[in-house]
Design a protein around this nucleic acid. Sequence first.
DNA 1: GCCAACGTTGGC
DNA 2: GCCAACGTTGGC
Length: 150
Amino acid sequence: MRYWLMKSEPEAFGIDDLARVGREPWDGIRNYQARNFMRDDMRPGDLALFYHSNADPTGVAGIMRIAGEARPDPTAFDPEAKYYDPKSRQDAPRWYLVDVEFERKLGRIITLAELRTRPELADMPLLRKGNRLSILPVEPQHWQAILDLE
DNA sequence: GCCAACGTTGGC
DNA sequence: GCCAACGTTGGC
């Protein structure tokens, strides 16, 4: 089983929203690296940190479970959708999503600022300068170290 | 709201 | 294939 970190702006969709709906298609990803992680490397049962970006505070807010194999992102086909991409066609989908399930909300937000103070997390891709990827793999030892902060 | 970082697009 | 222009992400 692998571990992941997935970012969302809580103003659009946060951990409380996921707690309410239980399960959600993680749509709107329009970055090839992030897509490849979902399509090629994620498996049902994998766990992911739910990370609040562009938030106050920004940081890890909860845990969710990958609930199924990747499938084409239908919002890419919809001209009315915010993330419509005319280059993604039904017979040749360009963008994919995975469904995620709520696992639990953390007792508190583990902030980005706090993660940055931990030497054992220093080599996490999340903390590398300029990294904007919205889906990232997390090493098991980093996963454990983050949850130990809770 | 600003801006650094960085990915994508498209002209050549 | 290069690279300038442009758009987006996301921290602050």
